[in-house]
């Protein structure tokens, strides 16, 4: 057990280091550097030299990598070019906002997904399942910005229930932020629900067809008890790691959803940083989102390991 945990944590650390190397070398391999990208057409002669001097770009790449990585370990993500401020300062509040958005979507989406997915699995191929599954496939097929726009059209433009864009500032208290974030949370949880619901559904179908459920049925165990005592725990265990993986989507989707609703989070900051061609900032956000993904996945895997004794004996 302890060995398994160590191995899992070790591979997470490896992934984190690998991501840092990839993010850094992606930019190294590209023609030009942070200064040519930032200065654009003015990027020649002394302006370029000065900029490179200031950003300390004149040294060999490995040296800069270790300085950057060392800084990240100490909580210093570098300096933004456009904003002329430490990135840690810029990112802080927005990181909180993105986590608030994602957490709200997960807290609403996951229970609904488990509930609906469970019912769909139990009543497989009945009208209820067909309707819910079709809606889920629709929700996960159309792009995030289209579902977001549809929600705006319906709930903001037509019904006028809530604002189409987030008006709260990036330093707003969490409750105030959430109050103006109904539609972004709804968009994210809709898609999140669709993904997890499908997984839970197929997992329930698997378990319902297993020998121990058949045995329980033949033994005459009441249906209610079979469902609650046997099927529910056994079908939710595999879903845990899937929920972890869905976070990958959530983080990519956050970039788009935040932009649609003008939500002051990391995703929109990334988009702004790209259009400002602020490479150090893009780099830092990519690393941060990668780290969040790895940590969530690690947590999900460890949770599954604790809850599911079978994983401890199998080679996971």
């Amino acid at each position: 057990m302890l060995r398994l945990i160590f191995r899992r944590v070790g591979s997470a650390l490896f992934t984190l280091v690998f991501i840092a190397v990839v993010v850094f070398s992606c930019l190294e391999l590209m023609p030009g550097d942070a200064c040519t990208a930032f200065l654009g057409r003015e990027g020649k002669g002394t302006a370029l030299e000065n900029c490179r001097e200031r950003m300390r770009l004149n040294r060999p790449a490995p040296e800069r990598f270790f300085e950057w990585a060392g800084g990240v370990l100490k909580g210093d993500l570098g300096t933004s070019m456009q904003r002329q401020k430490p990135i840690t300062e810029i990112v802080g509040w927005r990181l909180r906002n993105t986590v608030v958005l994602a957490a709200a979507a997960a807290m609403i989406g996951i229970p609904i997904a488990i509930f609906l997915g469970f019912l769909c699995g139990l009543y497989r191929d009945r009208p209820f399942d067909l309707a819910v599954s079709a809606t889920a496939i629709f929700a996960m097929t159309i792009p995030e910005f289209v579902s977001a726009t549809i929600l705006i059209l319906v709930f903001s433009v037509t019904l006028g229930w809530t604002a189409g864009v987030v008006t709260a500032g990036y330093k707003a208290p969490i409750l105030q932020l959430l109050a103006s974030t109904v539609l972004p949370v709804a968009t994210l949880s809709l898609i999140l629900t669709a993904h997890i619901l499908r997984m839970v559904r197929s997992s329930v179908i698997d378990v319902m067809g297993s020998d121990f459920v058949l045995m329980a049925r033949l033994k005459g165990v009441p249906f209610r008890q079979i469902v609650l005592r046997h099927v529910l725990p056994n079908s939710l265990l595999p879903a845990i790691s899937v929920i972890g993986l869905t976070v990958a989507w959530l983080l990519g989707g956050v970039v788009i959803v935040e932009s649609v609703f003008n939500y002051p989070g990391l995703g929109r900051l990334a988009v702004d940083a790209v259009s400002d061609r602020d490479l150090p900032l893009v780099q830092a956000i990519a690393l941060l989102l990668g780290a969040i993904y790895i940590i969530t996945n690690l947590a999900a895997d460890l949770l599954a390991l604790f809850l599911n004794p079978r994983l401890r004996t199998h080679r996971a």
């Binding site: 991501i19 590209m30 990334a270 790209v274």
Partner: peptide, 22 residues
């Protein structure tokens, strides 16, 4: 292992890194 690690960066960020640079 490398593919696993690369997959853990949301695709949109990989693309954004390239777009920012190119």
């Amino acid at each position: 292992r490398c593919a696993d690690a690369l997959m853990s960066i949301p695709w949109i960020l990989i693309v954004m890194i390239f777009v920012a640079a190119l």
